[in-house]
Design a protein around this nucleic acid. Sequence first.
DNA 1: AACGATACCGTACCAATGAGACGATTGAGG
DNA 2: CCTCAATCGTCTCATTGGTACGGTATCGTT
Lengths: 182, 182
Amino acid sequence: MSELTPPRYVVLGLIARHGAMTPYELKLKVEESVEYFWPIPHAQLYRIPARLAELGLLREETEQTGRRRRVFHLTDAGRAALRQWLADPNTPQPETRDPGQLKLFFADLGDPTDVVALARQQAAQHRHWLDLYRSLRSGLDPTDTARLVSRARILKLGILHEQAYVDFWESLATDPHRLDLD
Amino acid sequence: MSELTPPRYVVLGLIARHGAMTPYELKLKVEESVEYFWPIPHAQLYRIPARLAELGLLREETEQTGRRRRVFHLTDAGRAALRQWLADPNTPQPETRDPGQLKLFFADLGDPTDVVALARQQAAQHRHWLDLYRSLRSGLDPTDTARLVSRARILKLGILHEQAYVDFWESLATDPHRLDLD
DNA sequence: AACGATACCGTACCAATGAGACGATTGAGG
DNA sequence: CCTCAATCGTCTCATTGGTACGGTATCGTT
């Protein structure tokens, strides 16, 4: 069984966790969480399940009522593929694509004041995410122990991440000439 | 003048900084730095300059000697486009694609011991990058003041980033049941 | 000078993706 | 009924990712 791409495992995982879903429901689920660390454009969530069904990892059924939407169920093969992926600790390198970092990298080619404006904007942007993750964490339902642990963990990482970026950009905004070589 | 995609600005920026280059030289430059925060597959570095030349932002010349490679020069329009981009502090959101985070998010669907193995592997991986960035920073040439500042800054951010991830994964590896809700 | 080996360099191909316009369906309220 | 907004799905096109493959220079050896 060959490896799937990460977005495909996202679809398998969400269906494994929440039960059979339509592409539209997948889209809603993705927007509420996965999005933050693996964005998937919504059109993909119509293409991927269809592909997984061809591979036998999902089974497609059609609603008998109303809009007759396509509902995708996890098959045994799908569950097996998911488990196998989760059991393998080896993962590809993370990829970061950060336009702000890119502008910073080339900042010496522009006006020296640009970097301060950039830093301010970036600091604000990352602070926004930091606040969001913090409030999501304090809003966790302590009685839902099953979901709580994994939710809290992933939010913890998001918070550490954003905290690091806020620290960096704020320091750059207030003190652009400081040079850390410690 | 419509916006370009980030990889195109990378090409403009590298040529602005280092002078006219062939696609192959671009590839080498990308690998030595930009790669870490904006990966670009090498085939792109043959397509992008050609496209930018069509747009009038680069000018293509052909070597008279040997392999007769295509050398791309920055035009005034190209320089202007680059400056305009750098002067605009507004940037799209960063996108992170981290297979490790994805596996963590779905960890509750697999075996509970998987997460420890994952954490160990991730901790090692991020420690590797952390060490690399640190050694790159200590290897900076203090006499090259022009480049020093921008290099040091971007490395600082990389180090903060990796430090946060090392902290997270190491803590998870040694103490998988700890729950941070502070 | 001829040679092979090894790097260097470039292109081509095809499936997959990103982005977003557009169209269809539903159901709630008037 | 009718209208409007929300919901839901598909389509298209340029771009991208991934990678295989082919050509060209260089260098050490004889």
